[in-house]
């Protein structure tokens, strides 16, 4: 079996385990009720999106330094999956916000910075499509891939630096997580599941990109 296949099956199993943890094992949260279970989708997707854009950053630096096409393909694939996951995070957060906050959307620092984040990497993908010469497309994209990562600390720390409607992180913060172990366990299983899904998508996507390049060149 190829790596992609193994990753695909692992991700499928982990996602199933994540659903069991999120809906079967974790308790109904005391303050919010069952709508809190959206968190098992919302938090892992953004954390894996951070990972995806960190990979874009590193792969872009490697590409500019070594001009290795493989690094460019990994950056391209990783950005695509990162945008997908960020989109899922935003949509699920909005659906959660309506019954809990009382609004689908508000322009606080967290929601604004994550929107900018999303748009920058969407721009990255659009730019890749707009430039015909693959070498130039890769070079320009690498610059955006590096600059876009500047926004990452802004997204994460916005809830500490400014007053926001969005609450601060519960898991990715100094000190113990502010939640019972069963909720934390459900989050961690889902985090692993989405990380595996990310890896599967990136491996598969960069292979397709490699074969596209082969077919063209």
């Amino acid at each position: 079996m190829s790596i992609a296949r193994v990753l695909g099956w692992l991700a499928t199993l982990a996602l199933a385990a994540g659903l069991v943890m999120g809906f079967g094992v974790a308790p109904r949260e005391a303050t919010q009720g069952n709508v809190q279970r959206i968190m098992y989708l919302h938090v892992p997707t953004i954390l894996v999106a951070y990972l995806a854009f960190a990979v874009v950053l590193v792969a872009s630096i490697v590409y500019l330094a070594r001009r290795a096409d493989a690094a460019d393909r990994i950056a391209h694939a990783s950005a695509e999956v990162g945008v997908l996951f960020t989109g899922i995070c935003i949509v699920s957060g909005s659906i959660w916000g309506k019954p809990t906050w009382g609004t689908w959307w508000t322009w606080d620092a967290r929601l604004t910075s994550v929107s900018i984040f999303f748009v920058v990497y969407l721009g990255y993908l659009l730019l890749r499509g707009a430039v015909d010469d693959p070498e130039r497309a890769a070079r320009y994209a690498a610059v955006i891939g590096i600059l876009g990562a500047l926004n990452m600390p802004l997204v994460h720390f916005s809830v500490y630096w400014w007053r926001t409607l969005h609450q601060p992180p519960s898991m990715l913060k100094p000190g113990a997580a502010a939640m019972p172990p069963s909720i934390l366990a459900a989050l961690l299983v889902n985090l692993v599941a989405f990380a595996l899904l990310y890896a599967y998508f990136v491996v598969k996507r960069s292979r397709v990109l490699a074969r596209e390049a082969e077919a063209l060149g």
Binding site: Q32, N34, V35, I38, I95, K98
Partner: peptide
């Protein structure tokens, strides 16, 4: 609070 299963 209500559960909002529809939203979930």
């Amino acid at each position: 609070t209500a559960d909002h299963w529809g939203y979930v």
